[in-house]
Computed example of a mutant assay.
Amino acid sequence: MADEASTPPPPAYPTSACTCGALVIWTVTTSGKRMPVDSTPADDGNIKLTHRGTSLPPLAVVTTNPAQLFGVRHRYRSHFANCPHAASHRRGRR
């Protein structure tokens, strides 16, 4: 099995444009909710994407403890963290 730190992300994560014009990757969180993440990895990201096959969106594993992502080469950020239109896309808690 390849070392996770040296494994590149799957090349075919589908992206789509947000209303702000940025490309996002649509993911599903571990709690089953859809979440857009920025399509470009970020050194300070707190999200690890796990590829689940070609017919399922990637799984977004979100952490508040950066030490949990030590060695993860490609980290991502929630697009809501920097989207100027984030408030218009948020839904109330269900």
Rank of each mutant, 00 (worst) to 15 (best):
V72M: 15
A67P: 09
K48M: 12
H79V: 00
P11I: 02
T54F: 09
G32L: 11
C83A: 01
P41A: 02
I25S: 04
E4T: 09
A42R: 15
T7K: 13
T54A: 10
G53K: 08
V62H: 04
D44L: 14
Y13E: 03
R34M: 14
K48T: 00
E4W: 12
F70A: 14
A60R: 03
S16V: 10
R52S: 02
H79M: 07
S88T: 04
A2L: 15
W26V: 08
F80E: 04
Q68D: 11
P14W: 00
A60L: 09
C83M: 05
G92M: 10
S88I: 06
T50A: 12
P57Q: 02
G92D: 12
A2E: 14
C20A: 07
E4V: 15
T63R: 09
R52L: 06
M35C: 15
A60C: 11
T27C: 11
R77C: 05
S31H: 05
W26G: 13
T64L: 15
S55N: 14
P14D: 01
T63Y: 01
T19H: 08
A87H: 14
V61E: 11
L56E: 06
V62Y: 02
T40P: 07
F70W: 04
H89K: 11
S78Q: 03
R52D: 02
M35W: 06
H74E: 11
D43V: 08
T63V: 15
S88L: 13
T64N: 15
R75T: 00
T19E: 08
